[in-house]
Structures are given as structure tokens and as C-alpha cells.
Design a protein around this nucleic acid. Structure first.
Lengths: 139, 139
DNA sequence: TTAAGTGCAAAGGCTTTGCAGCATA
DNA sequence: TATGCTGCAAAGCCTTTGCACTTAA
């Protein structure tokens, strides 16, 4: 066992262990859309002792702290990505599996419409479009 | 074991067993948003011998035939509902758990925008808004 | 000492699958 | 007989949890 604390980043008031730092680093490098096992695989390349339980525990922590966003892009598992200032959504190509981000001002309008018409106050919109990306459309 | 075939409805060219009929009936009555175990629970009230495996197998069949739509409204499980002619989306109240349907023409516009701007051809939009329904907003 | 984090293994919960028996043609 | 559906039980997969040990303050 070796837990190395690291003071140059902070995760709320929680201790920053080497594992946490490593996981956040990988999430940032990956630019999103990692599932837990893939994150674990990449982390294990740099720290052979890290465990899957630690990955899950910290993903949950990051999520609760708002550092990371969890989304279910398929029916198998959750995907995680560093939370960015602006909300975005996903395009999922059912042919090649590629996941791309997109933004649209229409989502905010839709949320406003729903509040007016249904009285429902939305705090989060989960939106992804499934179909064929530019490349696969041609093929 | 008793498999009773029933000719007065059809499921593509597949045999309509008593179990399939029962499951479709319950899905129709429920007006959507059932998860597999709840569907099983309700089915078992009328047919004590039906099995959870049959529920899952037939949900998958219905899904493949386009009779039923599967959506993950939370991270635990999938929810199933009879597919209706017009596409709709869901409002999920994080306070009381209530799930409501809504439609919006903005989704079609968004899909068109994405096709123009990103070259992505969407075949399905998965959209739900999480927040507080009218009742829970006041409380 | 006290509170918190970790690895390991076991357990949970949802879903799928293997198998033998039954149903229909 | 041949194909397809079913129930049951077991297995799969993702995720969480219990426990003992380690770390840091």
C-alpha cells in the first residue's frame, strides 16, 4: 500500500491522494467519454496497484463534488467526463461508435418552454442523438 | 407448462402466446414507464407461472419489432413503454419520482441543425429533463 | 488517536443464457 | 419431426460494500 498525498491540487476539502490525482489527470487527457473499466485500465498502466473499487469510489466522489459528469450513453454502463463550464450533449454514431459533443441554444429554449407549459423546472437535460456520423453516412 | 397461442393479435409473424399477449396488455394499460421487474410483478398477478426470463426475452423481442421502446430513465434499469406514433420525451421529477411525457417541435429543429452543422444524421433522440415537477416545486 | 482512503474479495442488482420440456404445424 | 416458446437456474456484467490495513493530521 502506498498512498501519496499531493497538495498542489484540491478536491473540495478532501485529501488529494495519488490515485485521485491520477484519475483526474486521465479524465482530463481523455477529453471525456470514458467508462469506469477503461479509466481503470488506463490508470493501471501508470499504477499497477490501483483497484477498480477505488476508481468507482472516486468517480462517485467527483460526481458528488460536481467535478465529473456521469452519463449513460448506452445501456451497458456509465461514461464519465470532466465537467466543463458549458453544458453539452452527445452525438453517438451507431455504426462506428464514435461519440462527439455538441451544443445548442435550442435546449435552453426547450427547457424554458417546458417550464412555461408544464410547470416543470428542469435542472438538467440529458440529450443524445443516435444515428450516423458524417463519415458513416456516406459509406 | 402451458403455452396458449392466441390468433387474434399478431406480433409480426411470431406466434402470439398467452404470455406475450399478457405482457403487451399490461404495457398498454400501464401507459408506459414500466421497468422489467414491475412488469413481471404485474404479469405474475394474472399468471403465477410466468418467469422473469420470459419478460426479458419478450421485451427484447418487442423492442426489436418496434412495438416497445426502451429507455433508461435512471442509472439502475431500463423502462419500457408501448411505442406511440409520435415521438415524445420525459420529465423526471427528482423529488417525487414522477415521470411525465412531453413533446416539442424544437427537437426536430435541433436534429435538423445538427445535420446541417455537424453532418450527423440522427435517427433517434434520447431526451429527458430532470428537475422538479409543478407540485414539488412549490413544496 | 481519529478520520479518511485504499486494495481485495465478496456481494448486489439487472439482464442474459443454457437446458430440458412443451406446443404447434 | 422440426421449430419456437417457456420456466428454472446459473452465469455475466457493472457497481457497491465489508473488512483490515495504511496514511496523514
Amino acid at each position: 500500500m502506498r498512498i501519496k498525498r499531493n497538495a498542489d491540487i484540491s478536491i473540495a476539502d478532501r485529501p488529494v491522494t495519488a490515485q485521485r490525482r491520477l484519475l483526474l489527470d486521465i479524465l482530463k487527457e481523455a477529453d471525456g467519454h470514458l467508462h469506469a473499466k477503461e479509466l481503470y485500465r488506463r490508470a493501471a498502466e501508470r499504477d499497477r496497484e490501483i483497484s477498480l473499487a477505488t476508481v468507482y469510489r472516486n468517480l462517485r466522489l467527483f460526481k458528488e463534488l460536481g467535478l465529473v459528469r456521469e452519463t449513460r450513453l448506452d445501456d451497458l454502463r456509465c461514461y464519465y467526463e470532466i465537467r466543463r463550464p458549458s453544458e453539452h450533449y452527445h452525438l453517438i454514431c451507431t455504426a462506428c461508435g464514435q461519440v462527439t459533443d455538441f451544443e445548442s441554444p435550442l435546449v435552453a429554449r426547450l427547457v424554458a418552454d417546458v417550464e412555461l407549459e408544464c410547470g416543470f423546472h428542469a435542472e438538467r437535460a440529458v440529450l443524445h442523438l443516435e444515428g450516423r456520423c458524417g463519415g458513416c453516412k456516406k459509406a
